[in-house]
């Protein structure tokens, strides 16, 4: 008998309720963090445009660039979530994994359901500020996506979220041998931010690098959903991007499975 979808809904709902149970933290997470990131980007790119004196950089004018970053901040948070998968290494390290090994459920599915439930603040943030975006005026460019763009972006977000989680899993599983894998998470965050379009738009890379990047897993994390909502992708380009991402999902899933199976044999549950 397999675990029922009701279980995972229950788990996600509990996690969502937990995310809302600390009111101050919830609103800091939703509002303050957004303006802090936006302020930094605004200051940086206004200075770059003013210093270089160029009207466009990589095909973006200043309002277009700011719009790109606003969307990357909002959608990127949904892709990365609260980085719940980072809890996997913690569970291995402090023995919290033991209780899940006793239950007749998959630990990964359970953890992923928790990860999805914890997305609630990021989802509220996305809806809130995307609704406000058209009202912000020309300073952040025009933003009027149609229903098809919404659906394309939604699918890209879903796949991006799953992919980021699956990339984390084999890295987190290294904790079976190395105890602390925090530096690997930082490295992933940096590389995925740089090569995925979170730190800067992929259009700023040279054409040769862009051609390579579209086959790597990172583009699907940030560039694909943002490009989809901005209407910069044809359906064929979007579908190819998703197919590449799903291929990487399968690959990372297999890799994580192999590492996990081997690592489990070294698990001590802490203490003798």
């Amino acid at each position: 008998m397999r675990a029922s979808p009701a279980l995972y809904l229950h788990v996600a709902s509990l996690e969502a309720r937990k995310a809302m149970s600390y009111r101050a933290d919830f609103w800091i997470n939703v509002v303050v963090s957004f303006f802090a990131q936006l302020g930094a980007v605004w200051y940086l790119w206004t200075a770059i445009f003013r210093t270089t004196g160029q009207a466009t950089i990589g095909g973006y004018n200043l309002p277009g660039m700011l719009q790109y970053y606003i969307l990357v901040i909002l959608m990127g948070k949904l892709v990365r979530g609260q980085e719940f998968s980072a809890g996997v290494s913690q569970d291995i390290y402090d023995g919290g994994l033991s209780r899940y090994l006793l239950y007749p459920v998959s630990y990964w599915s359970f953890n992923y359901a928790q990860h999805l439930g914890a997305l609630l603040p990021a989802a509220v943030q996305l809806v809130l500020f995307m609704a406000l975006l058209p009202l912000m005026g020309g300073g952040v460019g025009d933003f009027h996506p149609g229903p098809v763009q919404f659906l394309m972006a939604l699918a890209a977000l879903g796949v991006g979220n799953l992919l980021y989680y699956l990339i984390q899993l084999p890295l987190q599983s290294v904790a079976f041998w190395a105890d602390n894998v925090w530096s690997l998470s930082v490295l992933l965050r940096f590389i995925s931010g740089l090569l995925g379009g979170s730190m800067l738009p992929l259009d700023l890379f040279p054409p040769g690098a862009r051609a390579v990047l579209q086959w790597l897993p990172f583009r699907a994390l940030f560039d694909l959903p943002v490009a989809a909502i901005l209407g910069r992708l044809t359906v064929a380009e979007w579908a190819l991007g998703l197919a590449v991402a799903l291929g990487w999902c399968a690959l990372f899933w297999l890799l994580a499975k192999g590492v996990w199976r081997k690592g489990e044999r070294s698990y001590t549950g802490v203490g003798i």
């Binding site: 008998m1 675990a3 029922s4 009701a6 279980l7 229950h10 788990v11 509990l14 239950y103 007749p104 459920v105």
Partner: peptide, 12 residues
């Protein structure tokens, strides 16, 4: 009570 409900789902 919430923990027990979760276990009810886990063990069906």
């Amino acid at each position: 009570a919430d923990c027990f409900l979760l276990l009810k789902e886990i063990y069906q």
